[in-house]
Amino acid sequence: GATAVSEWTEYKTADGKTYYYNNRTEESTWEKPQELK
């Protein structure tokens, strides 16, 4: 299949934890999204 550009962006909180934000759905998660595995 075609490689889609991930909708997920990786961010870090002030205390250094990583989370992921989906630009399309406006969803955020602590877990690494399936698309990034």
Rank of each mutant, 00 (worst) to 15 (best):
24 R>Y: 14
29 T>F: 07
33 P>F: 03
2 A>F: 12
16 G>A: 01
3 T>E: 13
20 Y>G: 00
1 G>Y: 10
22 N>I: 00
21 Y>R: 05
9 T>Q: 12
13 T>I: 02
29 T>M: 08
29 T>S: 10
25 T>L: 04
17 K>R: 13
19 Y>H: 06
15 D>C: 10
33 P>I: 01
8 W>K: 00
33 P>L: 01
17 K>M: 07
6 S>A: 11
15 D>H: 04
21 Y>W: 08
24 R>I: 15
35 E>K: 04
1 G>R: 00
3 T>Q: 15
18 T>K: 06
18 T>A: 07
30 W>L: 08
12 K>M: 12
19 Y>S: 02
25 T>K: 03
7 E>T: 07
22 N>L: 01
34 Q>H: 12
18 T>P: 06
10 E>L: 05
17 K>C: 09
2 A>G: 14
5 V>N: 12
1 G>F: 13
2 A>N: 14
35 E>D: 11
2 A>R: 01
7 E>N: 07
4 A>P: 14
30 W>T: 11
11 Y>T: 05
14 A>P: 13
18 T>D: 05
35 E>W: 06
11 Y>E: 07
17 K>S: 06
6 S>T: 12
3 T>W: 10
21 Y>P: 03
4 A>H: 14
24 R>K: 14
4 A>N: 13
5 V>E: 13
8 W>R: 00
25 T>N: 03
15 D>K: 02
12 K>G: 03
29 T>K: 06
24 R>V: 15
12 K>V: 15
19 Y>F: 13
6 S>E: 11
19 Y>C: 04
10 E>T: 08
27 E>A: 04
29 T>Q: 10
19 Y>K: 05
32 K>N: 05
27 E>R: 04
14 A>H: 11
14 A>R: 05
6 S>G: 11
34 Q>G: 11
9 T>R: 10
5 V>P: 12
4 A>M: 14
2 A>Y: 11
18 T>N: 06
5 V>L: 15
15 D>Y: 06
17 K>Y: 08
29 T>Y: 07
16 G>N: 05
16 G>W: 00
32 K>T: 09
25 T>F: 03
25 T>V: 01
3 T>G: 13
21 Y>F: 10
6 S>L: 11
13 T>E: 03
4 A>D: 13
37 K>T: 15
13 T>W: 03
18 T>M: 06
30 W>D: 07
36 L>G: 06
31 E>S: 06
8 W>N: 00
